[in-house]
Simulated scan of single mutants.
Amino acid sequence: MSDIDCLIIGAGVIGLACAAQMARAGNSVMLVEQERRIGEHTSSRNSEVIHAGIYYPPGSLKARLCVEGRDLLYAWCQAHGVNHRRIGKLLVAVTQAEVPALEALESNARHSGVDSLEVVSQARLRELEPAVAGVAALFSPQTGIIDSHGYMESLLAEAQRHGADLALDTRVERLAPGAQGWEVEGVSCAERFSIRARTVINAAGLFASQLAARVEGLAPGHVPATHWCQGRYFGYSGRSPFSHLVYPMPEANTAGLGVHATLDLGGQVRFGPDVAWTETLDYRVDESLREDFSHAIRRYFPAIDGQRLTVGYSGIRPKLSLPGQPAADFNIQGPEAHGLPGLVNLYGIESPGLTASLAIALHVLRLLERTT
């Protein structure tokens, strides 16, 4: 049994950001991942959007960490050569009935510290995006796109540069508080291992609640249920009809922001995600969804050619809310919340988790520094 300062479980974008932050702070860090590659699940299966911070309730963790993380992320990309573009986003009211909700979003964003939104008239919308139908819009100049894989590789490189180690194909099976930290047991590349860590960060994403349920001494009341919500994407062959990201108004009482149009760094359009609750890790996309996607997209892009929609990919979000409920906030529990020294559990880190990742890592560091 060896000793380290910090064990981080889960090498998605949150675990990687925490590894970079903890290692830079002078800690010996071991990052473990049950898959054979980093970022295998939610972190590599999303829209790759850098969010401005428009949608989240003012004062919530999502709102605060998105705005802070957005600025940190742009600076990180510049400093580390991560491919990205501050491309801008149009949030569109398709009908007059949607304008009050659009105005409410602008107010919500302002109260969260996002004061860069521009009100766009119907005429101006036609100039910016001639293919988009709408009566009004908001333009978000701080919204961008990022190479999520390149970003994760840069986080890993930074963590390793400061001495962090990465163990893939490694599953933690037991976590128990001990006299000098945490005693951890599991299986790595089919061999049993044990390690002692002064602090532990549960950044297991989709599996965070399952892992927390195996923590000895952690009261069940501190382990929320994680629900899996799948989002499917379709590509669009040929030249892009848009030069910005285009989002419809969010649908009420749903888990997503509507089937929106994003651009990748090569200039190709993809549409998604939709919302499908699931209990299995199934990433297949059925071609029969094309008609449903065409119908959703046609509201704001009337000239869509459904035959140009091509089956894309899907991702699964860890959600703390149930179907029909408002989206839950991030749930980041440090020692002060659950009473176990040196342990941080991160639950429900869905969108805007990628944007907020560096701010989340700083938040976790502060929680541990305050209690250890």
Rank of each mutant, 00 (worst) to 15 (best):
E118P: 00
V119Y: 03
V120M: 02
V120K: 12
S121T: 10
S121R: 08
S121A: 09
Q122N: 02
Q122F: 00
Q122M: 14
A123C: 04
R124Q: 13
E127L: 12
E127A: 15
E129D: 13
E129F: 01
E129H: 09
P130N: 09
A131F: 14
V132A: 06
A133L: 00
A133W: 00
V135I: 05
F139L: 11
S140R: 03
P141H: 04
Q142G: 03
Q142S: 11
Q142L: 08
T143M: 10
T143S: 02
G144D: 09
I146V: 15
D147I: 11
D147K: 14
H149P: 01
E153M: 14
S154W: 05
L155K: 15
L156K: 07
A157I: 10
E158P: 01
E158N: 02
Q160I: 08
R161F: 11
H162V: 00
H162K: 06
H162S: 15
A164R: 04
L166F: 03
A167C: 09
D169N: 06
V172Y: 00
E173N: 07
E173P: 01
R174I: 01
L175C: 09
L175H: 09
G178I: 05
G178P: 05
G181F: 07
W182Q: 13
E183Q: 13
E183M: 11
E185N: 04
E185I: 01
V187L: 06
V187A: 14
S188H: 10
S188G: 01
C189S: 14
C189D: 07
C189M: 10
E191K: 13
S194G: 11
I195G: 05
A197D: 03
